[in-house]
Each structure stands twice: as structure tokens, then as C-alpha cells.
Amino acid sequence: MENRSEGSGPPDPAIMSERRKLINLAYRLLGSLSDAEDAVQEAYTRWYTMSEEQQASIETPGAWLSKVTSRICLDMLGSARARRERYVGAWIPEPVPEPTEWSRQGRPSDGTVDPADRVTLDESISMAFLIVLEAMTPAERVAFILHDVFHFPFADIAEITGRTPGACRQLAFSARRRVDAAQPSATPTVEQARIVRDFKQAWEAMDIQALVGLLDPDAVAVGDGGGIARAALEPLTGSGQIARAYAEFVRLATDATILERTVNGQPGLVAQQDGRTVTVFAFDIVAGKIRHIWAVRNPEKLRSWTEGWTEG
């Protein structure tokens, strides 16, 4: 581990084994893998710059690292809001692939995948869930994720946020209402996969009527190019507009290959050109219809997708 103080010795395996949990925590709090890695790195730096006596005085190092990481993320969320106000176009959370297909180094097929760097995929990491989190205040997001996802007691959350346990309880309750209102009962994964596959087939065939039939009439499609890759600055709304725009994409991008992949734990698609992933598509499916499509094209958010893929 870099930045250790003199005399602190080599990294403690027990301490380093907390990394996976910390990455999972930080990613849910921030919606960005690169920011999550920075937050976790900073937490470890603070641990290893302490003296051995200071480290020995901490009864549960894992809990200490989780609290410090959470505080760092809370601070980062405040500054992230300001950065995202200057972001070109829509900001979508950074998508993550299936853990077996991804490593922090972006080379999932070379046998060097580090389990400590994987993000565990469950319902708390779906793109629809992360989008709801983006509408919360930093304090709401932290209180909700720490309590409802990672089961922190409100007393610990109060220590992290600088608020009372009662205030943290209210923050989590408010956030939970947002989530419940935004997320109706989930569509079974098998059904989601079928709908995404049908969408892919209709899309490749440029069958506008079939696409319209798969989309909710009030569907919304959002693109994130970050001012680097080409993407619509405004969302596409309505099944007809989305179907026509996506058919035009296939017509123009004749060298693109569309593949079925797991995106944030849900069935999704990726577009590849010359074997390199250029767009990741996440879907929100409600009552058998596609309600949202999120297309991430910003290459800075696709580093975990850009190497090691094979067609199939």
C-alpha cells in the first residue's frame, strides 16, 4: 500500500481484505467507480499514516475504515454536485459489468481479476436505483445507503454525518419514500432479459413498429457523452421518437455490433466498434414495457468495459 508511514510495516492482509466492502460502499454512495476508488484509497492512506499505537487503539479496523470512507464520500458528494452542474449534457452513473467480466485494471480475460476490486451486483446497484439516489441530498443518500443497504445503526450514521440519530432516521425515511415511489414492483430478470433481447433484435432489424411495441408510450431515453462522445444533450421522449432515433443509429453505425451483457446486475446491451465497447445501455422495465433507457457513451465511464471483451 502506498503512502504508509515509516515503521508501519507491510499491508495487513486483514485490513486489505476490507477493500471489496469499501469499494461496494463507496460506489453506491458516489455512483462512480473512479471516485469510489479514490475514496477508498484515501481511507487506506489515513489508516497507514497513523502510528502503530494509534492503529492498535482501534478496536474494529473494518468499522473504522467504513466510517472514514463514508465521511470522505459525503464530502465528495457535495463537490460532485457542483461538478455535475457544469457537466455537458446528462450525467448518468458509471455502469459496471458482471464481476466475472471485470477487473479494476479493465482486463477481465487475463486471469488477473482481483476479487477485492469487484462490485457486488444486487438490486441496490441497478441503474434505476442509482438514478433515484442522484435526486437525493448527500445526507439523505448517505443515511439511506448506510442504514438500508449496509445496516449501519443510526448512532454510527450520526457520527459520520454530524447529525443526531433521530435526524439520520428521518433522512433515511425520506430517502426510502423516494425509492418506493420511483420503483414499482420489479420485473423478473428472465422477463427483463427476454424484452431486452426482443429490443435488440428489433433494433438491429430497424423495425420501428416492433420497437414502439416494446417501449412504454411515455418512455424516456437519456444519453451521456460527457462532452467527449457524441450524445443527444436532451432526453428522447415517447416511444415513437426513441424508436426512430435508435433505428437511425443502426443505419448510420454499420460497423457497430450490439451484444447482450449484464449492466449493473440487470440485462442490458453494449455497442462495440472494432471490438471496443463504445456505449453501454441500461434499461428500466415496468409492466412488460421499457420505461427508461440510459446510454453511457462517455469513454471515461467505460474503462471497465473497453478491454478483454469477446463477441458472443
Score class of each variant (00 low, 15 high):
D110S: 02
D110L: 01
T112K: 04
P115C: 02
D117M: 10
R118Y: 04
V119W: 05
T120A: 10
T120V: 15
L121W: 07
D122V: 08
D122C: 07
E123C: 11
S124I: 08
M127K: 08
M127W: 07
M127N: 05
M127E: 04
F129C: 10
F129R: 15
L130E: 00
I131Y: 10
V132L: 06
E134V: 13
A135Y: 15
A135N: 14
P138V: 07
A139L: 12
A139G: 12
A139T: 11
E140R: 03
R141H: 02
R141K: 14
R141C: 01
V142L: 06
A143M: 00
A143L: 02
F144D: 00
F144V: 00
L146E: 01
H147L: 05
D148W: 12
D148Y: 11
F150E: 03
F150V: 10
F150K: 08
F152T: 04
D156V: 12
D156T: 15
D156I: 09
D156E: 14
A158Y: 07
I160K: 07
T161K: 09
T161Y: 07
G162D: 01
R163N: 10
R163I: 13
T164S: 14
T164A: 06
P165S: 05
G166Y: 13
G166M: 10
G166Q: 14
C168I: 04
C168T: 02
R169P: 14
R169M: 14
R169N: 12
Q170T: 15
L171W: 06
A172G: 02
A172Q: 02
S174Y: 05
